[in-house]
Nucleic acid binder design. Structure first.
Length: 464
DNA sequence: GGAACTCGCCAC
DNA sequence: AAACGTGGCGAGTTCC
């Protein structure tokens, strides 16, 4: 079961990778410092307004009565004490150390207007302090030079710091706009981002060789997340033009399929899907609850299909989990058991890319490490080749960053199509030739910003 | 006054 | 049998 580690090859990959990353770091990315300063001042005002509004309430008067001059709306410790000890509210969830949680999920369930303002302030402060502040602090002559590390992660993925280029907001529209409007290409250039689609899922197939997974990867008319959405929400077929169906597919993907691949189990998945994605409560369900669906509500649909309570839904997800691993992906499931056995016997796991990981691991870790690592190494190898060619051929375009399965380039407009097709060839053709263990097709998607426009202006790029 | 910790939150 | 994988970073708090 175990692969043979190839440490010289692994070493060489890191060695070449570090040098390619160093060149991207040196290149840097342009940043609009004036914009950051202005936007920061704007956020300061917004936050100050919320802060004044909060301090002017009975809720906060009470806070100062308890804490005096030390009262601080940023202190979650104080907030937890006030809510869960003084006011005796039952916390909706606990932190890992067993105290009442004060995160977004827990606080959203408390019906006090001041709490909503605190959450709003948190969001604005996150953008201001973690991103805009860091952009201003770390820039040199209007350029950011984020570092990309290859020595910090136990799966042999990369990390990034000063600034962390790998966690700039993308899901929250407002946060995305504010932060990405600061990042620009060099004058006259444009930003191009090319990412591998579903690369971890594809690379996982190289380890477990599950035929059903293989079909999902190879057959463009198949849709794993859509199939799971139908099973979870008891639908005959998915119609992507219906908004609630689109949400259901998202819920299946992010609330079931991915968590299951990372080693989560049905209890968490059921709660996630029912409460977070559908807006349904924990107990018995009534008609007219949760998000809208089919002219009515999601609870109407689920009740009509005999799922009339959270507990019944959890049992339903349990059956789906059982079906997922023991019927649909049974070969993958057997591989997980064998892989875990192999680790327990040998004390290490190896990757196709030559790396050996040893040390104490939990089951999920030991299974996820080789997949996460070698999926990243696909990007790393491609990054190294693109860097090499860009220098050999004297491109005006350069690599400037990387986000696990995506590379970001600063491109001269005259070279856009040439660069994109070169990257396409390297990522999808050269790589599988270089590593013969890649027995699945690889695909990339690209997005490009207009000339002199910020990273917020990305539009789909179609390969010529 | 700094190190180490917890908590929360951003990304893949 | 066990129960979500990998990071960085800011603010608050605690410890020395």
């Amino acid at each position: 079961m175990q692969l043979t580690p190839n440490l010289p090859e692994a070493y060489q990959l890191l060695q070449d990778g570090i040098l390619a990353f160093a060149r991207a770091e040196q290149e840097g990315m342009r940043i609009d410092v004036d914009y950051c300063v202005k936007k920061k001042a704007h956020l300061d005002k917004k936050i100050a307004r919320l802060d004044r509004k909060l301090r002017d309430t009975k809720f906060y008067m009470h806070w100062t009565k308890v804490y005096g001059a030390k009262a601080n709306p940023d202190s979650n410790w104080q907030l937890a004490h006030l809510l869960y000890n003084v006011r005796k509210i039952t916390p909706a969830k606990l932190t890992p150390s067993g105290k009442g949680a004060t995160d977004d999920e827990a606080l959203s369930q408390i019906d006090i207007p001041e709490i909503k303002w605190i959450l709003e302030m948190r969001k604005l402060k996150k953008v201001r302090d973690t991103y805009l502040d860091a952009f201003i602090r770390e820039q040199v002559g209007g350029y950011l030079h984020p570092f990309f590390n290859l020595h910090t992660v136990k799966t042999f993925r990369s990390s990034s710091e000063r600034i962390n280029f790998q966690n700039i907001p993308k899901r929250d529209k407002e946060a995305m706009e504010i932060t990405r409007k600061a990042i620009f290409p060099k004058p006259g250039h444009q930003l191009l981002e090319i990412d591998y689609s579903g690369v971890e899922v594809r690379i996982s197939e190289c380890y477990h060789h599950d035929p059903v997974m293989r079909k999902y990867i190879e057959d463009p008319s198949s849709d794993m997340h859509g199939d799971m959405a139908c099973q979870i929400f008891v639908l005959d077929k998915l119609d992507k033009s219906i908004p609630s169906h689109k949400m259901m597919r998202q819920a299946a993907k992010n609330g079931f399929v991915f968590p299951q691949f990372y080693g989560d189990y049905y209890v968490n998945c059921a709660e996630n899907i029912a409460c977070k994605w559908c807006g349904l409560p924990k107990g018995k369900w009534k008609k007219g609850e949760g998000i809208e669906h089919d002219g009515g509500y999601i609870s109407d649909h689920l009740i009509a299909n005999k799922l009339d309570s959270f507990d019944k839904f959890t049992e339903h997800i349990k059956k789906i989990e059982d079906d997922f691993w023991n019927r649909r992906f049974k070969v993958y499931n057997r591989w997980k058991d064998k892989w875990w056995e192999g680790y327990q016997k040998n004390g290490y796991v190896s990757m196709y890319t030559g790396f050996r990981c040893s040390g104490i691991m939990r089951r999920n870790e030991c299974i996820n490490i080789p997949i996460q690592g070698s999926a990243f190494h696909c990007l790393l190898w491609s990054f190294i080749q693109v860097d090499k060619i860009s220098r050999e051929q004297n491109w005006k375009s350069r690599l400037i960053g990387q986000i696990h399965d995506a590379m970001v380039l600063d491109v001269h407009p005259d070279e856009l199509d040439m660069v994109a097709s070169t990257v396409h060839r390297i990522t999808c053709e050269d790589l599988p030739k270089h590593w013969s263990w890649i027995n699945v097709p690889l695909e990339v998607e690209a997005e490009v910003c207009p000339v002199d426009c910020s990273w917020n202006e990305k539009v789909d790029y179609h390969f010529k």
